[in-house]
Design a protein around this nucleic acid. Structure first.
Length: 229
DNA sequence: GCGACAG
DNA sequence: ATCTTGTCGC
């Protein structure tokens, strides 16, 4: 089990205070080594239920083939609050992480990294726990403004918040809405964008994220049919 | 004060 | 996030 970075807050107020403390530990910098593997992670749940299904999928960056997977089923009491997503999802993801037999060089999260009001999105927060390069790739914006990037795949424009560049609106498919990429920890924006473009499987979302999403939904639905019998 | 608000 | 069929457009 990973050494806990900190105790888990029991209230939104305590969580915000913790984010203010943790933000000083974040390091946005180039990768120290060329990555060969990348993992995607996601959680799924049935509305109104506290059970959460977490999953992580590791792929080779050059071929995008899946080389490892891990899942975990737990419960959460921390409900979703914009800006505090990590407190709801990280516990379950860390349980899945402990079951992983292959350590990925980079981890992509479904959400944001520093593109967050306190620069502490789920990718950044988790990066501090894992002490490994992480980045966020979200489907919508939490904070920040940007100019629409050109319509061609690969085009991107910076996301700005309080005078800082916090991420990029990146076009992963021609004429399709961009995804929002931001570094989490131990990586920089340029590398994050490059990695997302290399994870192209022909869809709007990067392959690591898509596979993790499919994995957790498969586990959740399998559990539903089990209970029905 | 009003609106916005990752998954 | 999840619940869901067809449908408009490239």
């Amino acid at each position: 089990m990973l050494t806990p970075l900190h105790a888990w807050p029991d209230s939104p107020e305590a969580a915000v205070a913790l984010q203010q403390q943790l933000r000083h530990q974040v390091r946005i910098q180039p990768l120290s080594q060329p990555p060969e593997t990348i993992a995607g992670c996601d959680i799924s749940f049935n509305k109104f239920e506290e059970t959460v299904y977490a999953g992580i999928v590791v792929l080779r960056l050059d071929t995008l083939e899946t080389i490892a997977e891990a899942t975990a089923i737990t419960t959460t009491s921390f409900s979703y609050v914009p800006g505090l997503l990590s407190f709801r999802e990280i516990p379950a993801l860390l349980e899945a992480w402990d079951k992983l037999t292959v350590m990925p060089d980079v981890v992509v999260f479904d959400g944001h990294g520093i593109a967050h009001p306190r620069r502490m999105g789920i990718a950044t927060h988790a990066g501090l726990f894992l002490d490994r390069p992480t980045l966020g790739c979200g489907k919508s914006v939490l904070v920040g403004r940007y100019d629409e990037p050109a319509p061609e795949r690969g085009a991107w424009s910076p996301m700005l918040h309080r005078g800082e560049v916090i991420g990029a609106a990146l076009r992963t498919k021609n004429r399709i809405n961009p995804v929002y990429v931001s570094p989490g920890h131990l990586i920089d924006l340029e590398t994050s964008i490059d990695l997302m473009l290399r994870c192209d499987g022909g869809y709007r979302l990067p392959e690591p994220t898509r596979r993790a999403h499919n994995l957790v939904n498969a586990v959740r639905r399998a559990n539903l049919s089990d209970q029905a019998q």
